[in-house]
Design a binder for these strands. Sequence first.
DNA 1: ATGTGAAGTAAACAACTGTTGACTTAGTCC
DNA 2: GGACTAAGTCAACAGTTGTTTACTTCACAT
Lengths: 200, 200
Amino acid sequence: MRATSQDTAGGVRRTRNAAQTREALLQVASRRFARDGYASTTVREIADEAGVNVALISRYFASKEGLFEACLAAAVTDLRRDAGDTSLEAIAPSIARRMVGATSDGGRLPDTLLLLLRSSGDEHVDNVRREFLQSLSERMAAASPAGPETLLRAQILLATTLGMALLRTSMSIQPLAAATEQDLLGPVSDLVDALLAEKR
Amino acid sequence: MRATSQDTAGGVRRTRNAAQTREALLQVASRRFARDGYASTTVREIADEAGVNVALISRYFASKEGLFEACLAAAVTDLRRDAGDTSLEAIAPSIARRMVGATSDGGRLPDTLLLLLRSSGDEHVDNVRREFLQSLSERMAAASPAGPETLLRAQILLATTLGMALLRTSMSIQPLAAATEQDLLGPVSDLVDALLAEKR
DNA sequence: ATGTGAAGTAAACAACTGTTGACTTAGTCC
DNA sequence: GGACTAAGTCAACAGTTGTTTACTTCACAT
């Protein structure tokens, strides 16, 4: 039964292939880091779930910290990609869509937002994270009519988005966790309007 | 210089006093667990910051897990207390007030909300946490005009509240982190109105 | 003042963590 | 077909973790 190829989490067979192994580690690690946090996740768990030897984490990513940094970079890249349309009307549908994980890249993207909330403790990596969240809020603010409170309000909307991801994925609060994209679109649209559309 | 009494984090002197020691541990642990998470926080750090011997954690709370459970119980008790007025108009001011930590009990209460987002990994404790969040959202829903989406909308509001606490306390996103109670009241009120006031 | 139980201390424990180095295996080019 | 190199394996490492045990010290009732 023991063949020269191994089983990954998805059950797909692999022959020796560095790129594929790297990607498998990234995918598993992103999910575990996002769901359980950095400190709770051990490199052995990640390696086992990816069907890969532990030592390869150090080889491909230098360290656990390096692996986390790579996960974060992938998440940032992905989020930047579909934040292309920054019109006010596009924000609510975009949030609702991302919340249910219906994005271009595979199935690991409901966890993408969660990753931004997880800290490794490393100061440099944490700064990357904070600066990206800052730029996300600034982009949302730029899409709405200018006002003295605009950035603050955009950050509150960002808080909602991250909080929803947390309550859905990590805490399974019902009915929020089971809500479909359509279920969410109404409330989220109201929310965007109230926060960003017209100044009081 | 070494006297019979010790220095706590607050600089207050203590003589041997079990209740005081227990309380010091609870206070320090609540803050650390809330800010850094369960796994990242070591019992030695907690004990040192509280000016207390590590072994006393096991003595007073049986285990690190027990200490976390006690912190969570204290947080739940506190949150239940000032959720007395459940009228729709009271929700926004209550959220704004809690966000800046201006509550009855000392200064550890900006962290109270964060604690609800931290997991110890223990299934039983995690259930307590989830059920309490559920009841919080149900209470908010009960304060607003009934509708098919009411609970979902209340949970989105809860997501906002928790997300704001995270972005403020744990991530220091500006200007959100520095916003005063007055700064927050306007946007949060708009948000509550949009989510809960009138059905679409 | 004094003895007694509670409060606090110190050191050691076993288990687990991330990381490393020497080793083996397999794919590929001549 | 056979080397050569990249990919993967294995076992051990040093440090850290939560917890326990035997011990010391203090506060308070008598």
